[in-house]
Design a protein around this nucleic acid. Structure first.
Lengths: 164, 164
DNA sequence: GCGGGCACGCAAAAATATTGCACGGCGGCC
DNA sequence: GGCCGCCGTGCAATATTTTTGCGTGCCCGC
């Protein structure tokens, strides 16, 4: 958003990102050994990456099933028209709902793809109804419940890190 | 998968999960203050949650745009039939590709929803071709490039945490 | 060839995480 | 009803990790 100046990530930065993206709890000296740098150098790089917005957050990944969120579903949504207010309102709703895990505005006959995480089909139905069926801005929607999450990885592919 | 015994998460556990899900770098005494527990009690609870598999990992969230992964796309994929081998092979491919951020097997006319993150449309095209067009198991696929990631939140909604 | 800025390593200091231990509540069992 | 063992807690000591200050070397521009 407002990081103008991503100051030329070098190869070591990419390596570090690849590492912390998998496990952010490792001590600095381990990361340092892995990339051939001292702990303090690693620390300063990570700080720079954080303040530059390259590292946006450091979070714990919780197993949805363990907290009673067993059902993932993908919803395709089309709004009634391309009115900017409608879109803004829809986005605000998506951002405000904790069950909405992801939301993309997309090209094509649908306007949005939304990933919903709920306890079960009943909860999903109630949520879909509330978010989509009852929303005047929504023209049409389709819910695709997931049998299974083959991959819910959250890591971003790092072109430079792969190369070597 | 193999945590049989998620040993009855109580309300404090839910609060902790809600906190570390947003920011896993906070010191224990802060978490302790937030939930009304001593740092060591918090530490032991988090350890228990980690070993029980409730907390699966602790990762850094990297801004895709900052590492040259500017394009997110959603692909809908249908396989040629419900042969188990085909499905297994497809899943293995999805798991192995770093550009595949998420993959769900879903109900309905499509078999899978796949979230792809690539540098640009050209890269996406090349990847789609390699993963889907050239795969004999894939009958049909459709790519929906994203204009924008409205929400790429990665947190799981916690029923108990919301209640209060 | 000569500064100036930048990133580094090292070491001291501060903060944080971990572990041992004793206490108190709770449930099962005489 | 009372007793015993278990579990989770807080506190304090210890170990580890992070942060910071400082001096050095390198590279770029002048």
């Amino acid at each position: 958003m407002q990081y103008f100046c991503v100051p030329a990530l070098d190869e070591i930065d990419h390596l570090l990102l690849g590492l912390v993206q998998v496990d952010a709890a490792r001590p600095l000296h381990e990361l340092g050994d892995a990339v051939g740098l001292s702990p303090s150098a690693v620390q300063r790089r990570l700080l720079r990456l954080r303040t530059a917005g390259v590292i946006r957050a450091q979070v714990a990944l919780v197993d949805p099933a363990a907290v009673g969120a067993a059902l993932t579903a993908v919803a395709l949504v089309a709004l009634v028209d391309d009115d900017a207010d409608h879109h803004a309102a829809f986005r605000d709703t998506m951002l405000a709902e904790p069950e909405v895990q992801q939301c993309f505005s997309i090209v094509g006959q649908w306007d949005y793809v939304v990933v919903l995480v709920t306890a079960d089909l009943a909860a999903n139905r109630a949520l879909s109804r509330r978010l989509f069926a009852d929303a005047p801005a929504v023209r049409r929607y389709e819910t695709l419940p997931a049998y299974e999450a083959v991959k819910s990885g959250l890591t971003v592919p790092l072109p430079a890190a792969e190369r070597r």
